[in-house]
Design a protein around this nucleic acid. Structure first.
Length: 456
RNA sequence: GGCCCCCUCGUCUAACGGUUAGGACAUCGCCCUUUCACGGCGGCAAUAGGAGUUCGAUUCUCCUGGGGGCUGCCA
């Protein structure tokens, strides 16, 4: 039985890079019909918070990433970790180290810790005195080679790894130790994680050797970079999932984008469903190099996804983003549908509603389009007159406007833009006839009146 | 510094060792058009550098350069 896990540490919100790791785990698990385990790595007591655990869980649920087991919490397994450490010390695979904690003496690397060869008597004497100590793994002097599902063969020279700490002086296990113990106990067969863990892998393999445990498969996913090719951080853009949720991206867009970032795909057809992504998942499609995060492409993908929604789906998903206005549901829905093409993310919705909400006189730049043209006022005045007598059906609104354009021998393109500016106060709006109808006769008259007046 | 990973248009990516090095996003121009958006057509744009192997290298090998990661009693 194949078993994989996603193991975030709850020291902040879920990062885009972590999310991609979760996605790859998820795709592989579902493709292989494997068990997917969620484990919260909270061994850093200083920085771990329940709040971020909750946020991470929420984000994963929002993304539709489901688990078969968990969440398990690493700290609940401390006694088990300590058992393992004791057995390692008994077998001389690990040893107590009584050296004082290095305080920033970032000097040349010492491969051999002085406590490594301490006699049993000396160790016992120290323990009797309750001297603070850590437990270090005794790392053999042999090269470590493993096959990574993404990187291929990776080899580390022996003798270069230090005897790293597996249990801190306060008795808690360190990350590299806890991971190995947990992955083993949980029967994890494939360890899929970010490339920042690649250099940890030989240490962890040394632990597997020490315990004579079966070594799992490893897959190290390249990192996501920012626009300057350094590791993606807040300096570049938002990195937390909830930021994208709050901006009004669809979860499926983020999933789709991240799944295809650094992944071979048909460029002519980059919008894929979760099911297709699962079906087509394969390790040889995962790029070996890091990729840059491209926000513009994410926006583009979201627009593509929005365009594919049916009207019902669109309105249903849009509903929580539609501003609270004294309009009927029907009117709100009509506005939402009419303005669809101006919405790339849901947070664009309030802006497109604003022209129906309040009338503000056009900005200076819009006025520039109108200045100097003698036909603007007569045309608008005529339209106002005619519309006031009209039954305000879509059909008659259109007929009135087109008739005036014809009578004054105007270019439709120009005249429509004048009218748009006058009625909406903006150079951009949804389709004008519909917009005018939605505004209603009274409001349209009112706005044209104000506009003509201030144009005197 | 040491160890490890990586390197094709600005970005994401194609290319059994043989292609005019392809596509998509972005950008620019044109068309469509009632503005925006969509769509259509077209332009600009890449094999990091140098050796080697080979009839032939984006592809294989080595060196240099660049980027990243690890080098914590963080994960």
């Amino acid at each position: 039985m194949i078993r994989v896990r996603f193991a975030p540490s709850p020291t902040g919100s879920l990062h885009l890079g972590s999310l991609r790791t979760a996605i790859v785990n998820f795709l592989f698990a579902r493709k292989m019909q494997a068990s997917f385990v969620l484990r919260i790595e909270d061994t850093d007591q200083q920085r771990s918070t329940e709040e971020s655990t909750r946020v991470i869980l929420d984000n994963l649920q929002w993304m539709g990433i489901t688990f078969d087991e968990g969440p398990f919490f690493q700290t609940r397994r401390i006694t088990s970790h300590q058992e393992y450490a004791r057995s390692l010390v008994q077998n001389h695979q690990a040893y107590q180290c009584f050296c004082p904690q290095n305080e920033g003496t970032n000097e040349a690397f010492q491969s051999k810790d002085p406590c490594r060869e301490l006699s049993t008597q000396a160790v016992e004497a120290n323990l009797r005195q309750h001297l603070p100590h850590v437990i270090r793994l005794r790392i053999p002097d042999t090269p470590i080679v493993f096959h990574d599902l993404i990187k291929g063969e990776v080899s580390f020279q022996g003798g270069l790894l230090e005897d790293f700490v597996i249990v801190r002086s306060d008795g808690t296990p360190t990350y590299n130790f806890a991971v190995v113990a947990d992955d083993h106990d949980m029967g994890i067969t494939h360890v899929i994680r970010g490339e920042d863990h690649l250099s940890n892998t030989p240490k962890q393999i040394a632990l597997y050797h020490a315990f004579s445990w079966v070594i799992p498969y490893f897959a190290h996913i390249p990192l996501i970079l920012g626009s300057d090719k350094t590791k993606l951080s807040k300096r570049h853009c938002d990195t937390a999932i909830e930021d994208y949720k709050e901006k009004g991206f669809l979860a499926e867009t983020l999933f789709n984008y991240l799944a295809l970032l650094g992944y071979t795909h048909d460029p002519a057809n980059p919008i894929l469903s979760k099911e297709d992504l699962i079906k087509n998942f394969s390790w040889d499609k995962v790029s070996r190099s890091a990729s840059q995060f491209d926000l513009q492409r994410l926006y583009w993908m979201n627009k593509q996804n929005l365009d594919r929604l049916s009207e019902e789906e669109y309105l249903q998903k849009a509903s929580s983003w539609i501003p609270d206005l004294p309009f009927t549901e029907e009117k709100k829905n009509r506005i939402a549908l009419l303005s669809r093409n101006q919405v790339k993310v849901w947070s664009d919705l309030p802006a497109v509603f604003s022209i129906f909400q309040t009338y503000s006189l056009p900005l200076a730049e819009a006025h520039l389009l109108l200045s100097g043209n003698q036909s603007v006022s007569p045309f608008l005045a005529q339209v106002k007159n005619e519309l006031s007598l009209s039954d305000f059906s879509l059909d008659s609104i259109q007929k009135v406007i087109e008739r005036e354009i014809e009578q004054l021998a105007l270019k439709k393109r120009d005249a429509m833009q004048w009218l748009r500016i006058a009625v909406t106060g903006s150079t951009v709006s949804p389709a004008l006839y519909e917009t005018i109808q939605l505004l209603g006769q009274e409001e349209t008259m009112h706005r044209l009146g104000i506009f003509l007046e201030q144009r005197q």
